[in-house]
Design a protein around this nucleic acid. Structure first.
Lengths: 197, 197
DNA sequence: ATCCTTACTGAATTACTGTATAGTAAGAGC
DNA sequence: GCTCTTACTATACAGTAATTCAGTAAGGAT
């Protein structure tokens, strides 16, 4: 049939559509947690039909893993690209910047954490990202000038710092007023000052 | 109709039935996360009919809040009952004891955290518990003999410690081998030693 | 032995779940 | 302008969701 009116839908490149769907899904997680992560809601919000998610991601679990990777890439400071002496400051400033340290974003994180145990694809994604995260932070710590008479084991310290950061994020998410960004930064700096000298 | 056979069901006191349903729901959260927290699964596991949860808890949100309170009471060390000089040790030993620091229990915690933002009753419950938790840990820190030439602000330190603990729990839950109990204990002790002297 | 409170059942309601799949059409390449 | 790839729609399917509610019956009280 010859085209009689405007196209019923617009095609995107696979990459663009995937990005759009991930963004919409992420916004849903941020706003309403895992309950918002459904085929219907995501497709309606994106203005596409129900079948498209499966076409691009294979399953909802696939989309969830992709969303995790995207959130990690968008909110975790990229340390590797910086000179070693600036990395720890960049980690703290980046982690607690408004872009990353806000209730919506952290809501999405917590929702994703809650799914890791039950979603194999997500668990793989998490382990991969976490391994490089620990590696990056360890390298940043190891690159610091060692204080005289003190030798530090970078890896466990990096893991502790990451756990502290995760805990601070969790607190801010569950009750923002109980843990504002400034207090969280201060906690990290105190932690590092006490353990690095 | 006169009783012709064994009773079709046994009545419990409201209190006992509530406890049973909370336990069953908790076991579900531990095993399969929030997806397992449904009327059907809980009632089937408890051997009761679908209507009973609503009868006792008003809604699934009510049950969720009750489960949160129960989990807190069962796994968080009770510091108030101890002499002040033992409290911090008790906190660390209790938190990382197998009863509390295992994948199933922590799974339940993470699943509950993921619901706090969307379940008003649960949020209230969390704020209440968290406030007393911070209070208890602050008191335990404040009760320590102050090292000479050092003055510590107990409250922020307590909050930091709690965040570190939460982060360690989260790590263990998401990837137990990456954060065994001993490493977690060590991280807390190092944290305290460095910041308290 | 009967009453009465209330723990409890179980079906109906209404709405939504992810996945499968048959078919449509957009728009780039030729 | 035609063809071809594949992004995309639309519907069917088989479950599963929480909540409502009318009615049943257990078992302590009297």
């Amino acid at each position: 049939m010859p085209r009689a009116s405007a196209p019923r839908f617009t095609r995107m490149t696979s990459e663009d559509r995937r990005a759009q769907l991930m963004d919409v899904a992420l916004a849903g997680l941020a706003k309403g947690g895992i309950q918002e992560f459904t085929v219907d809601r995501i497709c309606q919000a994106a203005g596409v039909s129900r079948g498209l998610i499966l076409h691009h991601f294979g399953s909802m679990g696939g989309l969830l893993a992709a969303v995790y990777a995207r959130l990690y890439r968008e909110t975790t400071p990229n340390l590797a690209s910086l000179p070693t002496d600036l990395r720890l400051d960049a980690l703290i400033d980046g982690t607690f910047a408004p872009k990353a340290f806000n209730r919506d974003t952290l809501n999405a994180w917590v929702a994703l954490w809650g799914q890791i145990a039950n979603t194999p694809k997500l668990r793989e994604e998490h382990r991969r990202q976490y391994a490089t995260y620990v590696e990056d932070v360890s390298a940043a710590i190891a690159a610091l000038p060692t204080a005289p008479g003190r030798d530090i084991d970078a890896r466990p310290l990096a893991k502790s710092l990451i756990c502290l950061i995760d805990g601070l994020c969790l607190q801010h998410c569950l009750d923002p007023e109980a843990m504002p960004a400034e207090a969280a930064k201060e906690a990290c700096r105190t932690f590092l000052a006490a353990q690095l000298g």
